[in-house]
Simulated scan of single mutants.
Amino acid sequence: MGQQHHGQCRHGQGGGHEHGHGHERGHGHGHGRHDHSDLDWAEVADYLEAQAELFAPLNRRAAAWVATWQPEPGLVVDVGSGPGIVSCQLADTFPGARVVALDGSGPLLERARARAERQGLADRFGTLEAELPDGLGDLEYPADLMWASRSLHHLGDQRAALAAFAERLAPDGVLALVEGGLPSRFLPRDIGIGRPGLQSRLDAAEDRWFSEMRAAQPGSVPEVEDWPGLLTAVGLRDATSRTFLLDLPAPVPEAARAYAVSQFQRGRGMLADFLDASDLATVDRLLDPDDKAGLHHRTDLFVLAAHTVHVARR
């Protein structure tokens, strides 16, 4: 509800795969090894596209910063691309590059191809349907830039997966890893209904949910979330981080309101077991389109998100 994990883990993600699916802990993306058979991919894709389009200003600034590290890559790979919104942004940022959107979902990659076609990028845009991390071996060439937004935390052994990412970089290639940041904020501390501090309790519930999600991944290995330290541990150099904000103050545009509603809806489904009855009742009021204190009508609704990008070089 606040943190969006990118990736589609029967969690909801993300935001993101998007770049993200559903909750993106700390936008969205990545598919680990999950059973996708129960998903309505059109619904997932609509959600991910709306999320990524809202976060486009943040991702553009992040990509511009990464470009100071790798100004003219020949091959850019978006690892866990989802429906390709950020992949296409990367193609804009790096007009001389070939861009490959890599994801475990064929339906989402179809969306990515269609978007690239609409934006006139098809001649230098490709897709690769593959599960992480093994599918990186299917890349024809090493990547000059690899962008991995919230896909890593859906893989059981994150260190081993990072090592696989690093292995597929060209000499002097750059890995940009989007993980962490801060829980997103949508409402003030006291919203006039329920107990004050709802968002902090939602964050605590999401932390518990996230720990259980991590532990349930196949081959899950506990790992200290020191991302620059992990990038260094797998043999990359010059690791550093920078955080980018999405700041949409009240009154928000309708797209931001719709995003907030979708985040609370997903959170309501994911976190019900972690919240007490009074907080669930408050969330239900917030989601009620007819309740004047709900998200559909509130004038104090805002979107404030902070995503951290960690970069390192081979």
Rank of each mutant, 00 (worst) to 15 (best):
I191C: 04
L152I: 13
A256S: 06
L280G: 00
G12C: 14
G219L: 02
L162V: 02
R242E: 13
A166R: 06
Q265H: 12
R25A: 15
D290R: 02
L75P: 11
P57C: 11
A64I: 08
V174N: 07
D144F: 09
D276F: 03
V221F: 09
G28M: 09
E117A: 11
R33T: 09
D238L: 08
W41H: 14
G7N: 09
L280W: 04
R98H: 14
F274G: 01
E110K: 12
V311H: 05
P73G: 10
D172P: 02
H19P: 12
S151F: 01
A256C: 04
E49R: 00
A176W: 07
R201M: 00
Q13S: 13
R150G: 15
D276A: 01
S81T: 01
L102Y: 04
M146V: 07
G12L: 06
Q8K: 13
A258V: 06
E179H: 01
A114R: 14
P218T: 13
E24D: 13
R257Y: 00
L187N: 08
R189I: 14
G22T: 03
Q8W: 12
D134V: 09
T308M: 07
R168T: 13
D279G: 01
W41E: 15
G135L: 06
V261T: 11
L102I: 00
H6V: 02
A148I: 09
V303T: 10
V79S: 15
F274L: 08
H17L: 11
P171C: 11
G180R: 02
H6I: 04
M270K: 05
D35S: 05
A112W: 04
D288W: 06
G180S: 10
P196V: 03
P218D: 14
R10G: 13
G7M: 07
L287H: 12
E223C: 15
G156P: 07
Y141W: 07
R237Q: 08
P71H: 04
F55P: 02
D291E: 09
S220M: 05
Q3T: 14
P253C: 02
P251Q: 00
R98T: 15
M270E: 12
A160L: 13
T240Y: 00
H154F: 00
D276I: 05
S200V: 03
S151R: 00
E167D: 15
R115I: 04
A42K: 09
L39W: 14
S149G: 13
R208S: 10
M270V: 08
V221L: 14
A256T: 06
E117V: 01
G235A: 07
E43N: 03
L304I: 02
T308V: 03
D288G: 03
R159Y: 06
D279A: 05
I193T: 08
R33L: 13
H307V: 08
A272M: 12
A50D: 12
S87R: 07
A170W: 01
G294Q: 13
A204D: 05
D279R: 00
A163Y: 03
A164F: 02
G28R: 13
L187P: 04
L39D: 13
H11W: 11
G235I: 05
E212D: 11
T68C: 11
G120E: 06
H19L: 08
D284P: 12
A166N: 02
V99F: 01
A116H: 00
R298V: 11
V66H: 04
